[in-house]
Design a binder for these strands. Structure first.
Lengths: 193, 193
DNA sequence: ACTACATTGTTGACGGCGACTACATTCACT
DNA sequence: AGTGAATGTAGTCGCCGTCAACAATGTAGT
């Protein structure tokens, strides 16, 4: 029976489900997520989520898309721009990426799950990795080459740092030290100069 | 009622469950895995797996451990040794890693899932990344520095290539091209020489 | 050969889940 | 005021993981 404080229409159940799920992913896994439990938490019936998401898969895909939007925003906010120089710029973007990953490990996993995501995503940042490399090439900070290809290599390495840092497979150590090490290896190379 | 071809004792149900699950992970996801369905496939009752794994979590952890063992073997088999030179060695190891990842995407995801794995793992290869870097330093192919730190940066980058290649977030392109690009970026650096 | 115990099965039940159906309530538009 | 869309509810089904009690077989000791 509805009481005064619980009207029949939630108002914005779709957004509430996605927000609550993102919160729960901070402490749990995708496997722990239950649409029924989310519906209970939000005070609606177990079938109400089906009015907004045809199935669990669609719900997880929407959650992943929201994650990409938040990551894009975080990277855009963290980007100091080309004027800062390549190394500080890469470290700033890398730190923002790793901060997002360590704060939302299960959401990151969902974002990169091939099957759950369904569709591809261009990757992080409003000023994308291609632009970072192209800017740096224009300033003589990166050698000649296809910016898209170099940018993908760069993104792969940064993603690797983030992925390893949240997976627990690293033996101790500080993730920021690893990030700096990786960025410097990419800039200067491992070969003796 | 048991027939002659179905004795009461399976004989090696534990191994059979892990093998069948690894097979199913080639085409499905961890979420699709069902202990009951595996038991049905193997001709035992739904509760038989509980005699080998206390719960689903323990089963997934055992599956992840088996995955690490197989990855270690694949890398050991692919390693041409220090004598091949650093670049060919990194490409060989990288190709084996990516081959494993693209052949077993869901298993790789399980191996790196922090929560499912529970315990940490030292990472790939009988001759680990530290040894690869130390060997190369001894031959003058890598600059001075902590081999463990440089090795972790190397592993992060290679893992990033593998992870991006199985997640579907890359826009087209050939993963081997990305691997070569990344290895060369790490060896020579992105800065102009 | 027999006995006892361990190992590894079976059967049944429970509660939670996702998905589906039919119906109910509210909102927005005309 | 009426209508259709949007968004809820209540109920059901089948599957799942987990648990308990019992059954069959294998192994070790005597």
């Amino acid at each position: 029976m509805r009481t005064a404080e619980q009207p029949y229409h939630h108002g914005d159940l779709r957004a509430a489900l996605l927000d609550r799920a993102a919160q729960q992913l901070r402490t749990g896994t995708v496997a722990d997520l239950s649409l029924r439990a989310l519906a209970r938490d939000l005070g609606v019936s177990h079938a109400a989520p089906n009015r907004h998401f045809p199935d669990r898969q669609a719900f997880l895909a929407a959650l992943a898309r929201a994650g990409w939007e938040r990551l894009d925003s975080a990277l855009a906010a963290a980007d100091p721009g080309a004027g800062a120089g390549l190394r500080p710029r890469l470290l700033a973007l890398g730190r923002a990426y790793v901060h997002f990953a360590t704060g939302e490990p299960a959401l990151l996993e969902l974002m990169f799950a091939g099957k759950a995501a369904g569709e591809s995503h261009e990757g992080p940042g409003l000023s994308g990795p291609d632009a970072v490399v192209a800017d740096a090439q224009a300033r003589g900070e990166v050698r000649a080459g296809d910016p898209a290809a170099l940018a993908t290599a760069l993104w792969a390495a940064l993603h690797g740092v983030a992925a390893l840092s949240v997976s627990g497979v690293l033996r101790g150590g500080d993730v920021d030290v690893l990030l700096v090490q990786t960025v410097d290896a990419l800039l200067d190379g491992l070969r003796p100069r």
